[in-house]
Simulated assay, not measured.
Amino acid sequence: MPVINTQSGTSVDEIADHIFRISTPVPPSVMPGGFTFNQYLIADDRPFLYHSGPRRLFAMVSEAVAHVLPLSTLAYVGFSHVEADECGSLNDFLRAAPQAVPVCGRIAAMVSIGDLADRAPLSMADGDLLELGHHRLQWFEMPHLPHGWENVTVFDQTSNTLLCGDLFTQPGHEPAPITEQDILEPSEAFRLEMDYYAHAPDTRQMLTRLARLHPSTLACMHGSAWVGKGDALLLELAERVSPG
């Protein structure tokens, strides 16, 4: 795991074809049990950063991006929902990358980002596609899954990677960059402790829809990325959070 910043522990790892996990640990002395904040950078003709990280991590995350490609070449900064760790340093990235465009779901664009962002956002409706060059991203509206009316989930059709945001959040500050080990049990233990899900009535239906994509890589925002039969794991999560 290449550590880019020895002071913060921020690291960069390629977890799928030209998809890089940027991860900054939060030690147990700051948060009991430790934690991680992850962003995902897709290096392509039009580079895409998914989740900016909070403002206080901008220096570390931008340094990590620059380790892979020139920061000024970013074309898009996207995110799942409006929260500090998803888009807190959005405007910092827009200043550093003059051609970059915020990209988010239509609800986030309408109720928040159209006002908060320094540049007008690209608003993505359910099913919309974003072509990066080699990679092709599809947007899925997932309101309140796990939280936030404006929440979306993004699927890279090229690498079969689901950018799944706060789904499968795992605690700990030293997880492997990518794993085939079980992430459901630790993520469920964390969910039951924090109860950060909205428990929307159509949660099962939305998770089933994501399972039909048959993702082979889950790019989790907190903890390890995961490889395996993503459809089975998503359906197992559906049983846990919305029993039939």
Score class of each variant (00 low, 15 high):
residue 11 S to A: 10
residue 58 F to K: 04
residue 54 P to I: 01
residue 209 R to E: 11
residue 57 L to T: 11
residue 208 T to D: 06
residue 159 S to T: 15
residue 224 S to V: 08
residue 85 D to I: 10
residue 70 P to R: 15
residue 13 D to E: 10
residue 190 F to C: 01
residue 132 L to P: 03
residue 81 H to E: 12
residue 236 E to H: 06
residue 215 P to K: 12
residue 143 P to I: 00
residue 190 F to S: 00
residue 151 N to S: 13
residue 21 R to N: 10
residue 131 E to P: 04
residue 47 P to M: 13
residue 222 H to L: 08
residue 205 Q to H: 11
residue 167 L to D: 02
residue 48 F to T: 01
residue 34 G to E: 02
residue 79 F to V: 02
residue 38 N to W: 04
residue 224 S to Q: 04
residue 92 D to S: 14
residue 27 P to Q: 05
residue 158 T to F: 07
residue 159 S to C: 09
residue 20 F to T: 01
residue 6 T to D: 12
residue 173 H to F: 07
residue 83 E to F: 12
residue 106 R to P: 12
residue 200 A to S: 13
residue 222 H to T: 08
residue 221 M to H: 11
residue 111 V to R: 14
residue 163 L to F: 12
residue 129 L to P: 00
residue 150 E to N: 15
residue 142 M to A: 10
residue 61 V to C: 01
residue 221 M to N: 05
residue 128 D to Q: 13
residue 39 Q to C: 09
residue 229 K to L: 03
residue 131 E to I: 12
residue 107 I to Q: 11
residue 111 V to L: 14
residue 35 F to P: 03
residue 99 Q to A: 14
residue 146 P to G: 10
residue 80 S to D: 09
residue 146 P to C: 10
residue 115 D to H: 13
residue 152 V to W: 04
residue 208 T to F: 05
residue 195 D to A: 11
residue 28 P to K: 01
residue 184 L to N: 08
residue 95 R to N: 13
residue 140 F to V: 06
residue 128 D to Y: 09
residue 36 T to S: 01
residue 13 D to M: 03
residue 120 A to W: 02
residue 61 V to G: 05
residue 147 H to L: 13
residue 133 G to Y: 12
residue 238 A to K: 03
residue 175 P to H: 08
residue 211 A to Y: 07
residue 244 G to V: 07
residue 241 V to L: 09
residue 205 Q to L: 15
residue 89 S to T: 12
residue 202 D to L: 06
residue 79 F to M: 02
residue 210 L to F: 12
residue 244 G to A: 15
residue 111 V to C: 10
residue 52 S to K: 00
residue 76 Y to W: 11
residue 191 R to S: 07
residue 209 R to T: 14
residue 30 V to I: 15
residue 72 S to H: 12
residue 173 H to K: 03
residue 120 A to E: 15
residue 208 T to W: 05
residue 46 R to F: 12
residue 227 V to K: 02
residue 193 E to F: 14
residue 152 V to K: 00
residue 31 M to I: 15
residue 221 M to K: 09
residue 146 P to S: 13
residue 34 G to D: 06
residue 234 L to N: 02
residue 40 Y to M: 04
residue 92 D to F: 07
residue 65 V to S: 10
residue 129 L to A: 09
residue 186 P to N: 03
residue 124 M to A: 08
residue 35 F to K: 06
residue 22 I to T: 04
residue 27 P to A: 00
residue 7 Q to C: 07
residue 137 L to R: 03
residue 174 E to W: 04
residue 156 D to E: 12
residue 78 G to I: 11
residue 40 Y to K: 04
residue 165 G to F: 11
residue 54 P to K: 02
residue 104 C to M: 08
residue 178 I to W: 05
residue 8 S to A: 13
residue 241 V to S: 07
residue 114 G to S: 14
residue 173 H to P: 15
residue 172 G to R: 06
residue 8 S to C: 06
